[in-house]
Design a binder for these strands. Structure first.
Lengths: 155, 155
DNA sequence: CCCTCTTTGACCTTCGCTGACCATATCACT
DNA sequence: AGTGATATGGTCAGCGAAGGTCAAAGAGGG
């Protein structure tokens, strides 16, 4: 990780791994000092890396004795039910690319789908704006092609 | 190689040869500086020389700490070859549902994808004619939803 | 001369990082 | 209890540093 945000993310993940209940509590100011950066950098990391879509929960408190509490949510129980719920929450929604990708990422993290399967899914959802109108006509081929491309990435 | 693109291609290939795992990570700007050319020249080289068809894989990231990651696939491995061929065979084609499904079936039979993965793929390709124009807008959510449904049937 | 491949530069998008300014909790003193 | 000081954390706009895209100009070979 050559950039700060990456280092901080790694650091926090390490802490979470080391924690018995996948939950840690720390201070923004301290963390910022540790990495010699402005405190708001911590917020940047939290809001880009430790989102709900990725399966994290962040609580905080201001003022004297303030803190950040970061928890990694456990998806392993009642997988089917949770999948169903997720599916409900997705149905008909107009997902942003970012959210969709994070979601797949989370599925993989939770081991609900394999890495390959996650990649397949991302291949399908991460198409960019296609201006052409006839896109749908050739869509099948394009999507298949993309999915195979994903498998190639696997080697 | 008297032209720039050729030199850059050679340079990158040398780096790949020297790399133990046939993968390198570099910066577009740096490389461009090294060859005293505009950065976009690098993109030209990558998009004409290091394509999937030629057995290369290029990933990248923007912003501070951005990079280009170039990998050479091991073309001797049967699976990669098969995948490449199969992918080639449907380039630009306008597949019927039947053909597309058969195709996935072959992938599974050839053990190139697991049964689960095959199901994922079928879920994506087997949508019926959608005449609506706004389909693309909700497409992401719908597709994700369908793929999760498949996984549910699996569990 | 024409066609294809190269090269370039203008303009765009994404990501990381910072600092000014805001909100809220605790504490100390009256 | 009230109130101001102190100590946290939160938000947001903006800058700078990558890489991406595209169209037009240039170069070379038939």
């Amino acid at each position: 990780m050559s950039n700060l945000a990456g280092s901080i993310e790694l650091y926090i993940r390490r802490l979470l791994d080391a924690s018995p209940n996948a939950a840690i509590c720390l201070q923004r100011r301290e963390l910022a000092e540790h990495f010699a950066c402005v405190p708001s950098q911590i917020n940047y990391v939290l809001s880009t890396r430790f989102t709900l879509e990725r399966g994290y929960l962040v609580e905080s408190r201001r003022g004297g004795g303030g803190y950040l509490r970061i928890r990694r949510l456990d998806l392993n129980r009642d997988k089917v039910l949770q999948l169903l719920e997720m599916r409900q929450s997705l149905a008909g929604q107009n997902l942003s690319l970012q959210k969709a990708t994070d979601f797949v990422h989370r599925l993989v993290e939770a081991r609900l789908v394999t890495r390959r399967e996650g990649l397949l899914m991302k291949a399908v959802i991460s198409f960019e704006q296609q201006k052409r109108d006839d896109v749908l006509e050739i869509f099948r081929g394009v999507m298949l092609s993309r999915m195979i491309e994903v498998l190639l990435h696997e080697t």
